[in-house]
Amino acid sequence: MAKELLGMYLLFFKMGMVTFGGGYAMLPILRREIVEKRAWLTDEQVIDFFAVSQTLPGIIASNVSVFIGYQRRKTPGAIAAALGVVTPSVIIITLIAALMQDFQYHPMVRHAFKAIAICVCALILSAVISMWKRGVKDWAGVVIAVAVFALAVFTQVSPVWLVLASAFAGVAMKRAGKGKA
């Protein structure tokens, strides 16, 4: 059992190591390791895990890892998989952040990071555009998106309340819509 859990940990360590970015970036390596090499799951199951992971709180990559770990070895497997997938991040980011503290005032580093910050801003805006196209489908969606945007920009209200309120608004509107129809 302990050996299997260590194997699980190392497998997800490896997958965390080669994932760049977020969300579906992990899908190709996951398919190769879990579906093709080990046949633990089918393609459809992996896609389902990704879909459900997006509808739950937390980081998608760690959510998918927890589902797969749980599927194989229940709760200990889930914990081993989650710890495995985050360990490379913790090591690599800690090293980089420590280096940054020494070099962040170096002019060349500042020039590079100034331009990277502008690039990052464009990357996130591009992500927002894609999310808008996928997730905002009607006028009610537009109203919610604009209202949340305005509240987040112009007030100090916590994102926690905005997330909770919009989930309730979604349920309330859909139920009201059903009543009428």
Binding site: T55, A147, L162, V171
Partner: peptide, 29 residues
């Protein structure tokens, strides 16, 4: 109910991240 909640959540998360873009834009650009 999960589908209903996401009917509200998806646009809200889009709005939240758009607001984050505004503050990144202010310091970056």
């Amino acid at each position: 109910y999960v589908a209903y909640a996401f009917y509200g959540l998806r646009p809200a998360v889009t709005g939240l991240i758009a607001a984050a873009v505004v503050s990144v834009f202010r310091t970056a650009v």
